[in-house]
Simulated assay, not measured.
Amino acid sequence: MFNRWGEALLTRSLGKSASRELRGLLIENSGKIVLDFDGVDIINNAFADEVFGKLSIDIGLPELKKRTTFRNVNPFIETVIKSAINERLAEVAMRK
């Protein structure tokens, strides 16, 4: 799924494109969405925040976990995604 944007997902612009597609899939499908990173070597925080950080706020982390499953995620990508989600959730919690 994510390899359609390349091997290195390093811009917020790419993240916005991926986020739009993922949000559409979540609306169209009631089951789990497979988030496949086959062929993706690296992502950065801007991309991860745009896709996963913002989505974790918009639909809630429990719903995101319930509706998605990850495949072919290397340890670096996993760390970046978790960090982006945690940073976004902490930012929202600070505003309350």
Rank of each mutant, 00 (worst) to 15 (best):
M1V: 08
R4W: 00
R4V: 00
W5P: 01
G6E: 01
G6Q: 04
E7G: 09
A8G: 00
L10W: 09
L10K: 13
T11C: 13
R12V: 14
S13G: 11
L14R: 01
L14F: 03
G15I: 05
S17L: 03
S19V: 01
S19I: 00
S19Y: 01
R20I: 00
E21G: 00
R23H: 12
R23E: 13
G24P: 07
L25S: 13
L26E: 03
L26H: 05
I27K: 15
E28L: 13
N29P: 04
N29Q: 15
S30E: 15
G31R: 09
K32V: 15
I33H: 07
I33D: 04
V34Q: 02
V34L: 14
V34H: 02
L35Q: 07
D36Y: 02
D36P: 05
D36K: 06
D38G: 00
D38F: 08
G39I: 00
D41S: 10
I42H: 09
I42F: 10
I43K: 04
A46Y: 14
A46L: 13
D49M: 06
V51P: 05
V51E: 06
V51M: 01
F52Y: 13
F52L: 06
G53L: 05
K54I: 14
G60E: 06
G60P: 04
G60Q: 01
L61D: 08
L61E: 14
P62Q: 04
L64F: 10
L64P: 12
K65E: 15
K65H: 15
K66Y: 07
K66G: 08
R67F: 08
R67T: 08
T69E: 15
F70I: 11
R71W: 02
R71A: 09
R71H: 04
V73F: 03
N74T: 02
N74R: 05
P75D: 14
F76K: 07
I77A: 08
E78W: 06
E78F: 04
T79W: 03
K82E: 15
S83C: 09
S83Y: 08
S83F: 08
A84L: 08
A84W: 10
I85V: 14
N86W: 05
E87R: 13
R88K: 14
R88W: 06
L89M: 11
L89S: 06
L89D: 10
V92E: 15
V92R: 14
A93E: 14
K96E: 15
